Simulated scan of single mutants.
Amino acid sequence: MKKLINDPADVVSEALLGIAAAHPDLGVDHQNKIVYRADAPVRGKVGLISGGGSGHEPLHGGFVGPGMLDAACAGEVFTSPVPDQVVAATRLADGGAGVLHIVKNYTGDVMNFEMAAELVTADTGVEVASVVVDDDVAVQDSLYTAGRRGVGTTVLLEKITGAAADEGRDLAAVADVARRVNAAGRSMGMALTSCTVPAAGQPTFDLPEGEMEIGIGIHGEPGRRRVPLAPAREVAEMLVEPVLSDLDFTGGDGALVFLNGMGGTPMLELYLMYNEVAKILQKAGVTVVRSLVGPYITSLEMAGCSVTVLKLDDELLRLWDAPVSTPGLRWGR
């Protein structure tokens, strides 16, 4: 294992120290491992929090700031944050208008966020709503989930829902936007290599030379099938076809296409892949009006990518274009 770390047990804590040093406009609760807006809570605004295992950076702490999340909980690598962390983040984000939990569909995340919501409501009376993201078309159930996994649509949902909250909408309206985004987004991913969790010191799974995994999750979970390496144009077909088969993306106000890197793939290859994906979508009659390319929801140093397509309407497009100012996404401010 070759990694830029000190002690594997301290990776998350020391990374949070780095976030605090690099981004003085953010606050960090080091005891509870929470990244939060320095001006939180914002009075009268619905608070947005999310979180999950570390190792997916910039998700979630890199998306804290105006226009996106109010706070994010960092679990240990590939491990859900515990309820006490979520409780503390919910209290930090509570500006008096309620708090929305954005939860990827992994069993530990769902359970711990649910428990935290019950504890906060019982203790303080804060109104908490939850939206579970389950956009992965690769498998119906996996090692970590009942139902589909939450993957790339999470990034788009946090951005669009953050804009809705910034407009001053109430909790029910903000949660409705989040559910609409989840219903309109589909994702599929692949891996060329595994990744190594620092505490484990060895690859999460064995992927021989000359093979790739189609339909992986963001923790390196196995997907639909293992196949021989293929040219990018064929890989793009393997990713896009299941997405288009699951939801009709034609018509309406177009689509947002997110070509995500899993952490170990250079931008050169991601843009090459985006070109192949765009050609397939054009042939299928999907009008692409917005795009996002880069490593935004990663799996440590895994080489590979995922494709997310989000069907837009005029409101979701406007909310996507709204200003955002976070370490991971920034425009219009």
Rank of each mutant, 00 (worst) to 15 (best):
T154A: 07
G168N: 07
L143V: 13
R318D: 15
S245E: 14
E127V: 11
D29A: 05
N32A: 15
R318N: 13
V324F: 04
G220I: 08
G261Q: 06
G304C: 04
K2S: 15
L119V: 13
G62W: 06
V309W: 11
G294D: 13
Q140S: 11
D29K: 04
I214E: 00
H60G: 08
L270P: 11
S80Q: 05
S245P: 00
L292K: 12
C73H: 04
S54P: 10
R37P: 06
T90G: 08
T308P: 04
A278N: 12
G294V: 07
P24Y: 11
E315T: 14
T308I: 09
L316H: 10
G251A: 01
S13K: 11
Q85T: 05
A164E: 10
R148P: 00
L319Q: 03
I280A: 09
R186N: 09
E76P: 02
I49D: 06
L292Q: 12
S50Y: 06
P295I: 06
F205W: 12
R91E: 15
I216V: 15
D135V: 00
L256T: 01
A232Y: 02
T154P: 05
L207M: 07
L268M: 15
A230V: 12
M238R: 12
P58G: 07
R37Y: 08
S299N: 12
T298F: 07
K3R: 15
G162E: 07
L312I: 10
V277T: 11
L312T: 07
A97G: 07
K279A: 15
V110A: 10
A173K: 10
P222D: 06
L100T: 02
N275M: 13
T121S: 13
D94Q: 01
K3S: 14
N6F: 13
G223C: 04
T204H: 11
I214D: 01
G304R: 00
R169P: 06
F78D: 03
L171C: 01
E269A: 13
G65Q: 03
M111R: 09
L69R: 09
V286N: 01
T298C: 08
L310P: 09
L229T: 14
P295W: 02
D170F: 05
L48P: 05
G65S: 04
M302L: 05
V288I: 14
T326K: 00
V131M: 04
V155N: 08
G147V: 01
T145P: 00
V126P: 03
L239K: 02
L59K: 00
P66W: 12
L26I: 04
K2I: 12
D206I: 11
V103S: 00
G75A: 06
A163T: 10
L239D: 00
A15V: 13
G263I: 08
T326P: 00
Y274A: 15
D170M: 02
A183M: 04
G55W: 07
D206N: 12
R37F: 05
D166E: 15
K279E: 14
D135A: 00
G168Y: 10
T298D: 06
A20M: 09
V177D: 03
K279M: 14
C73L: 11
D141Q: 01
L69N: 02
A183R: 15
F78Q: 01
G108M: 05
D248S: 07
E234Q: 14
A164P: 06
V181I: 14
A9N: 11
A20L: 09
